[in-house]
Computed example of a mutant assay.
Amino acid sequence: MSRLEYIKEEIRQRVSITQVVERYTNRRIVKGVCNCPLHTEKTASFSVDETKGLYYCFGCGAGGDIFKFVQTYLGLSFKEAVAQIDKDFALGITGEKISVKAQIAMREAKKKRAIEEYTKMQNNRLYNELCAQYRTVDNLVRVLEPFTYIWDKMITRKAWLESELDRLL
């Protein structure tokens, strides 16, 4: 067994896929399912299989093991992902430090996710505000709708009266 295979197996035995996903995404996995951290969605399509140590998203089709998840989520190479997991979970297996390039990539990925979350939050707030305004206008239309009939009758009556007055003069 090569050193890399040994390290991979050691990490897989000590860290579960659920721990990795929850650690890096701040999402809670309930009964093996959560919203996918790799794309924006409203329904939970991200599935985790603890026994196999794998994940799969039915929404975007992403899938793999803990290393693939860290690579995809943080934008790292395989070697950097192994070192990152080792460091973050204090396993002390690899003893390698993460490169500056990898740290910058992680910061950029984290910044991008923060911007996406903020945009999503703002869009939800705007959507809720527009819904409230729509409900207000809709209620006004419903309240005022009976008066349109009366208004039309009054306009018709006024026109008739004007024509009668013109006829008499």
Results as ranks from 00 to 15, higher is better:
2 S>I: 02
2 S>R: 08
3 R>T: 11
3 R>I: 12
6 Y>P: 00
8 K>P: 00
9 E>Q: 13
11 I>T: 03
14 R>S: 08
16 S>K: 08
18 T>K: 13
21 V>S: 06
30 V>T: 13
31 K>E: 15
32 G>C: 09
37 P>D: 12
41 E>V: 13
41 E>M: 11
43 T>A: 10
44 A>R: 14
44 A>I: 01
47 S>P: 00
49 D>W: 05
50 E>S: 13
52 K>R: 15
64 G>V: 09
67 F>K: 08
68 K>H: 02
70 V>C: 09
76 L>K: 08
76 L>D: 03
79 K>G: 04
81 A>S: 14
81 A>I: 02
82 V>K: 04
83 A>S: 14
86 D>L: 06
88 D>W: 11
88 D>V: 10
88 D>Q: 14
96 E>M: 09
97 K>C: 03
99 S>W: 06
101 K>E: 15
103 Q>L: 15
118 Y>M: 11
119 T>P: 00
120 K>A: 13
136 T>K: 12
141 V>S: 01
142 R>L: 02
143 V>A: 04
145 E>K: 11
147 F>C: 06
149 Y>T: 14
151 W>D: 07
152 D>Y: 03
152 D>M: 05
153 K>F: 05
153 K>H: 06
158 K>V: 12
160 W>M: 09
161 L>A: 10
165 L>G: 04
168 L>I: 15
